[in-house]
Design a protein around this nucleic acid. Sequence first.
DNA 1: CTGCGTAAG
DNA 2: TTTTCTTACGCAG
Length: 449
Amino acid sequence: MNSAPRPVAGGDDPETAAREPVLRAPSHQLFALIDVNSFYVSCQRVFEPWLNGRPVVVLSNNDGCCIALSKEAKDAGVQMGEPWFKLAPRAARLGLTARSSNYELYGDMSSRVMQVIGEHSPQVEIYSIDEAFAGYRGPLSTVLPFARDLRADIRRKLDLPVCVGMGPTKTLAKLANGLAKSFDHLHGVCIWDTVPESARDTLLSRLPVQKVWGVGRRMAEKLQAAGIGTVADLRHADPVVIRRRFSVTLMRTVLELRGEPCIDLEESRDLQDQLIFSRSFARPVTTAKEMEEVISNYAQRAASRLRQRSSQAKTLTVYARTAAHSPWAQHAPSTTVPLRSPTSDPLALTRAAKALLPLMIEGTRYAKAGLVLTELSRAGEQLAFDLFAEPAQEDSLGPLLEEIRSKAGANAIGLGRSGMKTRSAWEMRRDMMSPRFTTAWDEVLEVSA
DNA sequence: CTGCGTAAG
DNA sequence: TTTTCTTACGCAG
Protein backbone atom coordinates (compact mmCIF):
# COMPACT_ATOMS: atom_id res chain seq x y z
CA MET A 1 0.00 0.00 0.00
CA ASN A 2 2.80 2.32 0.87
CA SER A 3 5.26 1.04 -1.65
CA ALA A 4 6.82 3.74 -3.73
CA PRO A 5 7.34 3.69 -7.45
CA ARG A 6 10.94 2.73 -8.06
CA PRO A 7 12.96 5.70 -9.17
CA VAL A 8 13.30 5.64 -12.89
CA ALA A 9 16.71 6.41 -14.26
CA GLY A 10 16.75 8.48 -17.40
CA GLY A 11 14.02 7.78 -19.95
CA ASP A 12 11.28 5.39 -18.97
CA ASP A 13 9.82 5.93 -22.40
CA PRO A 14 11.55 3.21 -24.46
CA GLU A 15 11.38 5.19 -27.68
CA THR A 16 13.13 8.23 -26.25
CA ALA A 17 15.62 6.07 -24.44
CA ALA A 18 16.50 4.28 -27.65
CA ARG A 19 16.99 7.47 -29.60
CA GLU A 20 19.30 9.21 -27.18
CA PRO A 21 20.84 6.56 -25.00
CA VAL A 22 24.06 8.33 -24.14
CA LEU A 23 23.08 11.95 -24.37
CA ARG A 24 20.92 11.78 -21.31
CA ALA A 25 22.71 11.99 -18.02
CA PRO A 26 21.41 9.55 -15.44
CA SER A 27 18.53 11.17 -13.61
CA HIS A 28 17.69 10.18 -10.05
CA GLN A 29 14.53 10.70 -8.13
CA LEU A 30 15.68 12.34 -4.95
CA PHE A 31 13.95 13.67 -1.88
CA ALA A 32 14.78 16.91 -0.14
CA LEU A 33 13.81 17.64 3.43
CA ILE A 34 13.69 21.34 4.13
CA ASP A 35 13.43 22.38 7.73
CA VAL A 36 13.51 25.83 9.34
CA ASN A 37 15.98 26.08 12.21
CA SER A 38 14.28 26.78 15.55
CA PHE A 39 11.22 27.79 13.58
CA TYR A 40 9.22 29.69 16.21
CA VAL A 41 12.28 31.54 17.46
CA SER A 42 13.33 32.37 13.91
CA CYS A 43 9.86 33.75 13.14
CA GLN A 44 10.06 36.03 16.16
CA ARG A 45 13.51 37.18 15.08
CA VAL A 46 12.35 38.17 11.62
CA PHE A 47 10.27 40.91 13.20
CA GLU A 48 12.43 41.55 16.24
CA PRO A 49 15.93 41.44 14.75
CA TRP A 50 17.51 42.56 18.01
CA LEU A 51 16.86 39.01 19.20
CA ASN A 52 19.45 37.70 16.73
CA GLY A 53 22.49 36.22 18.41
CA ARG A 54 20.79 36.20 21.79
CA PRO A 55 19.29 33.29 23.74
CA VAL A 56 15.55 33.18 23.03
CA VAL A 57 12.82 30.71 23.94
CA VAL A 58 9.20 30.44 22.83
CA LEU A 59 6.73 29.17 25.41
CA SER A 60 3.82 26.77 25.05
CA ASN A 61 0.21 27.83 25.57
CA ASN A 62 -0.33 29.21 29.05
CA ASP A 63 3.32 30.28 29.01
CA GLY A 64 3.93 26.82 30.49
CA CYS A 65 7.20 25.51 29.16
CA CYS A 66 9.79 26.01 26.44
CA ILE A 67 8.79 24.55 23.09
CA ALA A 68 11.39 26.27 20.94
CA LEU A 69 14.95 27.24 21.77
CA SER A 70 17.49 29.28 19.87
CA LYS A 71 20.95 27.80 19.58
CA GLU A 72 22.19 30.34 22.11
CA ALA A 73 19.53 29.23 24.58
CA LYS A 74 20.53 25.59 24.11
CA ASP A 75 24.17 26.52 24.65
CA ALA A 76 23.19 28.31 27.84
CA GLY A 77 21.82 25.00 29.11
CA VAL A 78 18.10 25.65 28.68
CA GLN A 79 16.24 22.38 28.09
CA MET A 80 13.39 21.68 25.72
CA GLY A 81 10.21 21.37 27.78
CA GLU A 82 11.62 23.24 30.75
CA PRO A 83 8.88 25.01 32.72
CA TRP A 84 9.09 28.78 32.49
CA PHE A 85 8.42 29.37 36.16
CA LYS A 86 11.63 27.50 36.97
CA LEU A 87 13.57 29.39 34.33
CA ALA A 88 12.25 32.89 34.99
CA PRO A 89 14.44 33.60 38.04
CA ARG A 90 17.58 32.79 36.01
CA ALA A 91 16.42 34.54 32.84
CA ALA A 92 17.90 37.94 33.54
CA ARG A 93 21.28 36.50 34.41
CA LEU A 94 21.30 34.39 31.24
CA GLY A 95 20.19 37.33 29.13
CA LEU A 96 17.30 35.09 28.10
CA THR A 97 14.29 36.47 26.28
CA ALA A 98 10.96 34.60 26.26
CA ARG A 99 8.03 34.94 23.93
CA SER A 100 4.53 33.52 24.22
CA SER A 101 3.74 31.36 21.22
CA ASN A 102 2.00 33.17 18.41
CA TYR A 103 0.58 30.53 16.09
CA GLU A 104 -1.05 33.01 13.78
CA LEU A 105 2.36 34.42 12.98
CA TYR A 106 3.97 30.99 12.60
CA GLY A 107 1.14 29.70 10.44
CA ASP A 108 1.43 32.68 8.16
CA MET A 109 5.22 32.41 7.87
CA SER A 110 4.85 28.68 7.29
CA SER A 111 2.65 29.13 4.25
CA ARG A 112 5.13 31.61 2.82
CA VAL A 113 7.93 29.08 3.27
CA MET A 114 5.88 26.38 1.57
CA GLN A 115 5.13 28.71 -1.29
CA VAL A 116 8.81 29.40 -1.93
CA ILE A 117 9.56 25.67 -1.83
CA GLY A 118 6.77 25.20 -4.38
CA GLU A 119 8.57 27.62 -6.69
CA HIS A 120 11.54 25.22 -6.68
CA SER A 121 9.84 21.85 -6.91
CA PRO A 122 6.66 20.58 -8.54
CA GLN A 123 6.16 17.97 -5.81
CA VAL A 124 5.92 19.20 -2.24
CA GLU A 125 4.68 17.39 0.83
CA ILE A 126 4.03 19.68 3.75
CA TYR A 127 5.17 17.53 6.63
CA SER A 128 4.73 19.90 9.54
CA ILE A 129 4.48 23.59 10.25
CA ASP A 130 8.20 24.04 9.60
CA GLU A 131 9.16 21.12 7.39
CA ALA A 132 8.50 19.91 3.89
CA PHE A 133 9.66 17.11 1.65
CA ALA A 134 10.21 18.00 -1.98
CA GLY A 135 10.86 15.75 -4.94
CA TYR A 136 13.78 16.43 -7.23
CA ARG A 137 14.94 14.79 -10.43
CA GLY A 138 17.97 15.78 -12.37
CA PRO A 139 21.60 14.84 -12.84
CA LEU A 140 23.63 14.39 -9.68
CA SER A 141 25.80 17.39 -10.53
CA THR A 142 22.80 19.73 -10.22
CA VAL A 143 21.64 18.51 -6.83
CA LEU A 144 23.92 20.58 -4.67
CA PRO A 145 23.21 23.82 -6.57
CA PHE A 146 19.49 23.07 -6.27
CA ALA A 147 19.69 22.68 -2.51
CA ARG A 148 21.87 25.76 -2.03
CA ASP A 149 19.65 27.88 -4.20
CA LEU A 150 16.53 26.80 -2.33
CA ARG A 151 18.14 27.62 0.97
CA ALA A 152 19.38 31.01 -0.21
CA ASP A 153 15.99 31.86 -1.68
CA ILE A 154 14.17 31.25 1.59
CA ARG A 155 16.74 33.36 3.37
CA ARG A 156 16.45 36.16 0.84
CA LYS A 157 12.67 36.25 0.60
CA LEU A 158 11.71 35.50 4.20
CA ASP A 159 14.91 35.98 6.20
CA LEU A 160 14.50 32.50 7.70
CA PRO A 161 17.40 30.07 8.23
CA VAL A 162 16.79 26.58 6.86
CA CYS A 163 18.69 23.33 6.49
CA VAL A 164 18.27 21.12 3.45
CA GLY A 165 18.99 17.40 3.46
CA MET A 166 18.72 15.29 0.31
CA GLY A 167 18.83 11.60 -0.41
CA PRO A 168 17.26 8.78 -2.46
CA THR A 169 14.66 8.10 0.27
CA LYS A 170 12.75 10.22 2.73
CA THR A 171 14.55 8.54 5.62
CA LEU A 172 17.95 9.37 4.17
CA ALA A 173 16.86 12.93 3.36
CA LYS A 174 15.90 13.31 7.02
CA LEU A 175 19.20 11.86 8.10
CA ALA A 176 21.11 14.18 5.76
CA ASN A 177 19.14 17.10 7.14
CA GLY A 178 20.33 16.15 10.62
CA LEU A 179 23.92 16.14 9.39
CA ALA A 180 23.45 19.53 7.76
CA LYS A 181 22.33 20.82 11.12
CA SER A 182 25.16 19.29 13.13
CA PHE A 183 28.14 20.18 10.98
CA ASP A 184 28.78 23.88 10.51
CA HIS A 185 31.13 23.35 7.59
CA LEU A 186 28.22 22.00 5.51
CA HIS A 187 26.56 25.44 5.63
CA GLY A 188 23.08 24.01 6.08
CA VAL A 189 23.10 21.64 3.12
CA CYS A 190 23.86 17.93 2.95
CA ILE A 191 23.43 15.56 0.01
CA TRP A 192 23.58 11.94 1.20
CA ASP A 193 24.76 10.61 -2.16
CA THR A 194 27.82 12.83 -2.06
CA VAL A 195 28.95 11.66 1.36
CA PRO A 196 31.89 9.32 0.65
CA GLU A 197 31.11 5.64 1.23
CA SER A 198 33.83 5.38 3.87
CA ALA A 199 32.51 8.33 5.85
CA ARG A 200 28.96 6.99 5.80
CA ASP A 201 29.64 3.91 7.86
CA THR A 202 31.78 5.74 10.39
CA LEU A 203 29.06 8.35 10.74
CA LEU A 204 26.23 5.86 11.07
CA SER A 205 28.09 3.66 13.52
CA ARG A 206 28.36 6.66 15.84
CA LEU A 207 24.70 7.65 15.61
CA PRO A 208 22.32 6.12 18.14
CA VAL A 209 19.46 4.31 16.43
CA GLN A 210 16.99 6.75 17.96
CA LYS A 211 18.21 9.44 15.60
CA VAL A 212 16.46 7.69 12.75
CA TRP A 213 13.12 9.06 11.61
CA GLY A 214 10.43 6.76 13.01
CA VAL A 215 12.48 5.26 15.82
CA GLY A 216 11.51 6.70 19.20
CA ARG A 217 12.55 5.94 22.71
CA ARG A 218 10.52 2.74 23.14
CA MET A 219 11.62 1.20 19.88
CA ALA A 220 15.22 2.19 20.57
CA GLU A 221 15.08 0.28 23.87
CA LYS A 222 13.73 -2.85 22.19
CA LEU A 223 16.31 -2.61 19.45
CA GLN A 224 19.09 -2.16 21.97
CA ALA A 225 17.98 -5.37 23.68
CA ALA A 226 18.33 -7.10 20.33
CA GLY A 227 21.86 -5.79 19.93
CA ILE A 228 20.93 -3.00 17.55
CA GLY A 229 22.24 0.20 19.06
CA THR A 230 23.38 2.35 16.16
CA VAL A 231 22.00 3.45 12.83
CA ALA A 232 24.66 1.29 11.16
CA ASP A 233 23.41 -1.76 13.09
CA LEU A 234 19.88 -1.10 11.92
CA ARG A 235 20.92 -0.60 8.33
CA HIS A 236 22.73 -3.94 8.33
CA ALA A 237 19.91 -5.82 10.02
CA ASP A 238 17.96 -8.41 8.05
CA PRO A 239 14.72 -6.76 6.88
CA VAL A 240 12.79 -10.03 7.12
CA VAL A 241 13.87 -10.57 10.70
CA ILE A 242 13.02 -6.97 11.51
CA ARG A 243 9.55 -7.36 10.08
CA ARG A 244 8.96 -10.53 12.09
CA ARG A 245 10.36 -9.35 15.40
CA PHE A 246 9.31 -5.71 15.22
CA SER A 247 7.03 -4.26 12.57
CA VAL A 248 6.52 -3.72 8.91
CA THR A 249 7.10 0.02 9.40
CA LEU A 250 10.53 -0.60 10.87
CA MET A 251 11.36 -2.89 7.98
CA ARG A 252 10.57 -0.06 5.59
CA THR A 253 12.93 2.11 7.60
CA VAL A 254 15.71 -0.47 7.17
CA LEU A 255 15.16 -0.57 3.42
CA GLU A 256 15.05 3.18 3.22
CA LEU A 257 18.34 3.43 5.10
CA ARG A 258 19.77 1.21 2.37
CA GLY A 259 18.55 3.61 -0.27
CA GLU A 260 15.48 1.69 -1.36
CA PRO A 261 12.44 3.98 -1.37
CA CYS A 262 9.41 2.58 0.49
CA ILE A 263 7.70 5.73 1.72
CA ASP A 264 5.93 7.86 -0.84
CA LEU A 265 5.76 11.59 -1.11
CA GLU A 266 2.21 12.46 -0.05
CA GLU A 267 1.58 15.65 -1.89
CA SER A 268 -1.90 16.32 -0.62
CA ARG A 269 -3.74 14.63 2.11
CA ASP A 270 -6.90 16.34 0.95
CA LEU A 271 -8.97 15.54 4.00
CA GLN A 272 -7.71 15.01 7.49
CA ASP A 273 -9.24 12.25 9.57
CA GLN A 274 -9.97 14.29 12.65
CA LEU A 275 -9.78 17.71 14.21
CA ILE A 276 -8.86 18.17 17.84
CA PHE A 277 -9.28 21.35 19.81
CA SER A 278 -7.98 21.09 23.34
CA ARG A 279 -6.48 23.50 25.82
CA SER A 280 -5.30 23.50 29.39
CA PHE A 281 -6.74 26.25 31.55
CA ALA A 282 -4.74 29.00 33.19
CA ARG A 283 -6.76 28.21 36.35
CA PRO A 284 -8.81 25.15 37.23
CA VAL A 285 -12.48 25.15 36.24
CA THR A 286 -14.73 23.81 38.97
CA THR A 287 -18.31 24.69 38.06
CA ALA A 288 -20.63 23.57 35.27
CA LYS A 289 -21.44 27.19 34.59
CA GLU A 290 -17.83 27.99 33.85
CA MET A 291 -17.34 24.76 31.91
CA GLU A 292 -20.29 25.68 29.72
CA GLU A 293 -18.52 28.90 28.84
CA VAL A 294 -15.32 27.01 28.07
CA ILE A 295 -16.77 24.37 25.81
CA SER A 296 -18.98 26.87 23.98
CA ASN A 297 -15.87 28.85 23.23
CA TYR A 298 -13.94 25.74 22.14
CA ALA A 299 -16.82 24.51 19.99
CA GLN A 300 -16.97 27.79 18.14
CA ARG A 301 -13.23 27.86 17.54
CA ALA A 302 -13.33 24.25 16.36
CA ALA A 303 -16.19 25.18 14.05
CA SER A 304 -14.20 27.94 12.44
CA ARG A 305 -11.23 25.62 11.87
CA LEU A 306 -13.54 23.13 10.32
CA ARG A 307 -14.83 25.83 8.00
CA GLN A 308 -11.35 26.96 7.06
CA ARG A 309 -10.71 23.41 5.87
CA SER A 310 -14.05 23.26 4.07
CA SER A 311 -14.85 20.29 6.20
CA GLN A 312 -17.75 18.96 8.23
CA ALA A 313 -17.94 16.53 11.13
CA LYS A 314 -20.39 13.74 11.78
CA THR A 315 -19.25 12.91 15.31
CA LEU A 316 -18.12 15.00 18.26
CA THR A 317 -16.33 13.80 21.37
CA VAL A 318 -16.02 16.17 24.28
CA TYR A 319 -13.92 15.61 27.36
CA ALA A 320 -12.44 17.30 30.39
CA ARG A 321 -9.86 16.14 32.84
CA THR A 322 -8.13 17.07 36.03
CA ALA A 323 -4.38 17.71 36.12
CA ALA A 324 -2.36 14.52 35.69
CA HIS A 325 -0.48 14.47 38.98
CA SER A 326 -2.55 16.75 41.15
CA PRO A 327 -3.18 15.85 44.79
CA TRP A 328 -6.88 16.55 44.24
CA ALA A 329 -9.55 14.11 43.12
CA GLN A 330 -9.02 12.75 39.59
CA HIS A 331 -11.83 12.79 37.07
CA ALA A 332 -11.93 12.50 33.30
CA PRO A 333 -15.48 12.67 31.97
CA SER A 334 -15.93 12.20 28.24
CA THR A 335 -18.78 11.55 25.88
CA THR A 336 -19.30 11.02 22.17
CA VAL A 337 -22.22 12.63 20.41
CA PRO A 338 -23.31 11.51 16.93
CA LEU A 339 -24.37 14.61 15.00
CA ARG A 340 -27.53 14.36 12.98
CA SER A 341 -25.73 15.21 9.79
CA PRO A 342 -22.21 16.34 8.91
CA THR A 343 -21.88 19.92 10.04
CA SER A 344 -19.48 22.75 10.78
CA ASP A 345 -22.18 24.87 12.29
CA PRO A 346 -21.06 26.52 15.53
CA LEU A 347 -24.56 26.29 17.04
CA ALA A 348 -24.92 22.59 16.36
CA LEU A 349 -21.43 21.85 17.67
CA THR A 350 -21.91 23.98 20.76
CA ARG A 351 -25.20 22.25 21.54
CA ALA A 352 -23.60 18.84 21.13
CA ALA A 353 -20.59 19.74 23.25
CA LYS A 354 -22.83 20.60 26.18
CA ALA A 355 -23.39 16.87 26.62
CA LEU A 356 -20.31 17.02 28.82
CA LEU A 357 -21.93 19.18 31.47
CA PRO A 358 -24.12 16.56 33.20
CA LEU A 359 -21.08 14.28 33.52
CA MET A 360 -19.11 16.77 35.55
CA ILE A 361 -18.69 16.51 39.28
CA GLU A 362 -19.31 19.97 40.64
CA GLY A 363 -16.34 21.21 42.66
CA THR A 364 -13.75 19.01 40.89
CA ARG A 365 -10.70 20.94 39.70
CA TYR A 366 -10.66 20.39 35.92
CA ALA A 367 -7.43 21.46 34.26
CA LYS A 368 -8.11 20.86 30.60
CA ALA A 369 -10.94 20.25 28.16
CA GLY A 370 -11.15 19.38 24.52
CA LEU A 371 -13.24 18.49 21.51
CA VAL A 372 -12.51 15.78 18.98
CA LEU A 373 -14.32 16.04 15.66
CA THR A 374 -14.28 12.85 13.60
CA GLU A 375 -15.86 11.30 10.51
CA LEU A 376 -14.94 14.38 8.55
CA SER A 377 -16.22 14.97 5.05
CA ARG A 378 -15.94 17.79 2.54
CA ALA A 379 -18.38 20.64 3.07
CA GLY A 380 -21.15 20.63 0.52
CA GLU A 381 -21.24 16.89 0.06
CA GLN A 382 -24.37 15.60 1.62
CA LEU A 383 -25.48 12.01 1.90
CA ALA A 384 -27.96 11.21 -0.84
CA PHE A 385 -31.07 10.40 1.15
CA ASP A 386 -30.37 11.89 4.53
CA LEU A 387 -33.78 12.56 5.99
CA PHE A 388 -32.29 14.41 8.91
CA ALA A 389 -30.05 16.74 6.94
CA GLU A 390 -30.18 20.17 8.46
CA PRO A 391 -31.62 22.82 6.18
CA ALA A 392 -29.14 25.32 4.77
CA GLN A 393 -30.47 28.06 7.00
CA GLU A 394 -28.47 26.81 9.99
CA ASP A 395 -25.36 27.24 7.94
CA SER A 396 -25.57 30.98 7.56
CA LEU A 397 -24.48 31.83 11.08
CA GLY A 398 -20.95 30.46 10.74
CA PRO A 399 -19.74 32.70 7.93
CA LEU A 400 -21.23 35.72 9.64
CA LEU A 401 -19.37 35.03 12.88
CA GLU A 402 -16.22 34.45 10.86
CA GLU A 403 -16.53 37.77 9.12
CA ILE A 404 -17.01 39.68 12.32
CA ARG A 405 -14.11 37.89 13.98
CA SER A 406 -11.73 38.62 11.14
CA LYS A 407 -12.63 42.29 11.25
CA ALA A 408 -12.87 42.80 14.96
CA GLY A 409 -10.73 40.07 16.55
CA ALA A 410 -11.30 36.53 17.73
CA ASN A 411 -13.11 37.46 20.91
CA ALA A 412 -15.35 40.11 19.45
CA ILE A 413 -18.39 37.90 19.18
CA GLY A 414 -19.56 34.52 20.32
CA LEU A 415 -22.56 32.47 21.25
CA GLY A 416 -24.03 32.58 24.72
CA ARG A 417 -21.66 33.08 27.59
CA SER A 418 -18.54 32.72 25.49
CA GLY A 419 -19.22 36.05 23.82
CA MET A 420 -17.73 38.09 26.62
CA LYS A 421 -15.21 40.68 25.59
CA THR A 422 -13.30 40.55 28.86
CA ARG A 423 -10.90 37.66 29.32
CA SER A 424 -12.12 34.91 31.63
CA ALA A 425 -9.98 33.43 34.37
CA TRP A 426 -9.57 30.08 32.59
CA GLU A 427 -8.28 31.57 29.34
CA MET A 428 -4.69 31.09 28.25
CA ARG A 429 -2.01 33.18 29.74
CA ARG A 430 -0.02 34.88 27.00
CA ASP A 431 1.84 37.55 28.88
CA MET A 432 4.80 37.79 26.57
CA MET A 433 3.04 38.17 23.26
CA SER A 434 4.63 40.00 20.41
CA PRO A 435 2.23 41.50 17.86
CA ARG A 436 0.77 39.48 14.98
CA PHE A 437 3.03 41.31 12.55
CA THR A 438 1.77 39.73 9.37
CA THR A 439 -1.88 38.94 9.93
CA ALA A 440 -3.59 41.73 11.86
CA TRP A 441 -3.82 45.18 10.33
CA ASP A 442 -3.61 46.99 13.62
CA GLU A 443 -0.45 45.14 14.64
CA VAL A 444 1.50 45.43 11.41
CA LEU A 445 5.19 46.15 11.72
CA GLU A 446 6.09 49.77 11.17
CA VAL A 447 9.08 50.44 8.98
CA SER A 448 10.97 53.68 8.99
CA ALA A 449 13.19 54.20 5.99
C1' DC B 1 -14.48 -0.96 15.10
C1' DT B 2 -12.40 0.86 19.31
C1' DG B 3 -8.78 1.72 22.41
C1' DC B 4 -4.02 1.89 23.41
C1' DG B 5 0.74 2.66 22.51
C1' DT B 6 4.23 4.88 19.78
C1' DA B 7 6.06 8.54 17.11
C1' DA B 8 6.50 12.98 15.05
C1' DG B 9 7.33 18.15 15.34
C1' DT C 1 11.68 12.88 30.76
C1' DT C 2 7.95 16.32 30.47
C1' DT C 3 4.14 20.69 33.08
C1' DT C 4 1.98 21.65 24.79
C1' DC C 5 -0.89 20.50 21.22
C1' DT C 6 -2.13 17.99 17.02
C1' DT C 7 -2.14 14.10 13.74
C1' DA C 8 -1.41 9.48 12.19
C1' DC C 9 -0.56 4.48 12.21
C1' DG C 10 -0.06 -0.30 13.80
C1' DC C 11 -1.52 -3.76 16.84
C1' DA C 12 -4.52 -6.20 20.13
C1' DG C 13 -8.99 -7.47 21.41
